[in-house]
Every structure is written in C-alpha cells, then in structure tokens.
Amino acid sequence: MVLSDQSDMDHGISLLKQNRLTEIGLHTSLFPWGKVNRPQRADFVEFFKHASDEDIKTKAMAEITKFESIFGHPPKFISPQFNMHGNLRLLKVMAEYVVKHNIPMRIPRALIENEEINDNNYSAEVYLKRLGVKMTNHLFAHILGADAHQVKLSFLTELAQVQDNHSVEIILHPGYNDQETFESSSLNYERSRDLSIALDQNFKRSILELNYQFTHLSQI
C-alpha cells in the first residue's frame, strides 16, 4: 500500500476491508505521494545525493510509523517505490526495522535510475541476505509496453527456468487509466494491461501447471 493523499488512501483501505485482505505491505515512498506533487525517480536520486543518514532515517521511520498507526501493526512486508532500497543508506535503516520485526522485503533487484528490473545490485542483496532478511529468490516484471500476450509468455518462460524450491515475486500494477493517472505517471495504460493479465485465469493456470503455488510474502 502506498501512503498517498488521504482520500485515495481511505479508498484503498476500504477496498482492503471490502475484500478482507490482510497481507498488507508498505510501498514506501519517503516523500508524500500526492496527486499534485508526486516524486519521480530523479527526485530520489537527488535526495540521496544530498541527504544525511539522519534525514533518510527520519523520513523512512515516519512512513513506517504512519503505516503502524493506520493498521495497528507493522507492515507484513516492505517493497519500496522504484526499489529505492537499492540505496545502501536507506537499506540499512529499513533492514534494522525488518530484522527487528522479522518482516520480509522485496529483493532489491532494480537500480533506482532505471525502469528495468535487473540483477545489478549485488551489494544490496547480499547485505540483506547476511542479515537473514526474508526475500524471494527472484523478482520478475515487465512494466512498460503493450503486448499483454508477449508479457505473459515472457513471465511463463522466466518461471519455467526457475530452480525447484525457489520463490518468485511477480510485479503487476493493476488499475484503470484515467486523466489523473495519465498525467501523473509514465506508467498509465500498462496498469489496465496488468489488470487484464491479473484476471486471466489461463495465465494463472499456466503458472500452477509449472508446479508453483501462490502464497504471500510473509509465508516465504
């Protein structure tokens, strides 16, 4: 869950309640995720260039505390926006919290500068591993672009190559696409693409046929 503007957040919480969902993680964004002032990748890059360790800690903990006050318990997992926890200074703050509460984190596979998920963040990954933080073994995403069929095929191809007993997180961004989304995010029509993928029962069945089981991050 993103801690966004109050009205959007209230709507999100009502959807969680309506659907009796309890596995709620925190999608940290450090800065207010507002309708008007929405931080972009470049803002985070700049922030990390100039911020002190204390600045980073203050912002990260403020967001975690806000989540705890809304839900009455720590998040079930943490998956920072743009995988910004690839930044080691932020990672250390978050690692301290997740170790204390035994919370899993998204594997820090992406570089904040790029939109691609890739394997080029060994330092962050090994840091969490040494602390015993629970993560999936893999993170798959095809975020931009428009060929839903090819995206599904790519996911299935990647899943088929995963070693037995390994775990995978697949990232989807399901949603409709309106003027607000379009103007505030470079990820707009792809959200509806992901909605169609998420609702595709054949795709789900194909994953199960590869001998996977669906689970929550808290259960890995």
Binding site: Y176, N177, F182, N188, Y189, S192, S196
Partner: peptide
C-alpha cells in the same frame, strides 16, 4: 482513449487505447 471499467468489461481493445495518448505526451 482512457480505460474505465465499462470499456474494460466490454471490449478486447481496452487498455491498448492508452498507448497513443502516452506516445503523444511522452
């Protein structure tokens, strides 16, 4: 076009309509 529930539920060409808007802007 944008994509709302009505469009999503009634046609196989729903989210794809947003591509052009994205190209025009970005």
């Amino acid at each position: 076009g944008f994509c709302d529930q009505e469009l999503f539920d009634t046609t196989s060409v729903s989210w794809q309509r947003g591509q052009l808007l994205n190209i025009l802007k970005r």
